[in-house]
Amino acid sequence: MEKIELIGVNKSFKEEKVLKDICLTLTDNKIYGFVGRNGSGKSVLFKIICGYVIADSGKIMIDGKELGKDMDFPEGLGALIETPGFIWYQSGFENLRYLARIRNKINDAQVKDAIRQVGLNPDSKKWVGKYSMGMKQRLGIAQAIMEYPDILVLDEPMNALDEEGVEEIRQLLLKYRQLGRCILITSHNREDIEILCDEVFEIKSGVLQ
Rank of each mutant, 00 (worst) to 15 (best):
S132V: 14
Y89S: 08
P74W: 03
I102V: 14
N121K: 11
M146C: 05
V118L: 06
I115W: 02
L120D: 01
D70E: 15
S43P: 10
G119Y: 02
Q117D: 04
L80I: 07
V128I: 07
L99E: 07
M146I: 07
A100N: 07
I81T: 08
V44Q: 04
M61C: 10
T83S: 13
E147R: 09
G68H: 04
T83P: 00
V118M: 04
A79S: 12
K47P: 06
A142M: 05
W127L: 08
K69G: 07
Y52C: 10
M61H: 11
L24Q: 08
I141A: 01
P84W: 04
R37L: 13
R138H: 05
Q143F: 05
K136S: 10
D70N: 15
S57K: 09
K47Y: 05
W127H: 11
K136W: 00
M146G: 01
G33I: 05
K125L: 13
S91F: 08
K59I: 13
K30M: 10
G33S: 12
N29D: 14
D56S: 12
L26V: 15
I81M: 06
G41S: 12
K20T: 15
Q117G: 00
N95K: 03
D123A: 00
L19H: 04
I106A: 05
R97P: 03
N107V: 11
K136V: 07
I115M: 06
K136C: 07
S124N: 05
M71R: 08
A55C: 15
N38G: 14
E94L: 07
I87V: 14
A142K: 02
A109M: 05
D28M: 11
D21A: 12
N121H: 11
S40I: 11
G39L: 15
D123L: 08
R116T: 10
L67Y: 00
S57C: 10
I60R: 02
Y89M: 09
L67P: 01
M71F: 13
I60A: 09
L139K: 01
D72T: 08
V35E: 03
S40W: 02
L77R: 00
K69Y: 15
R37A: 14
I31R: 01
Y98D: 01
K65I: 12
M71P: 00
P84Y: 05
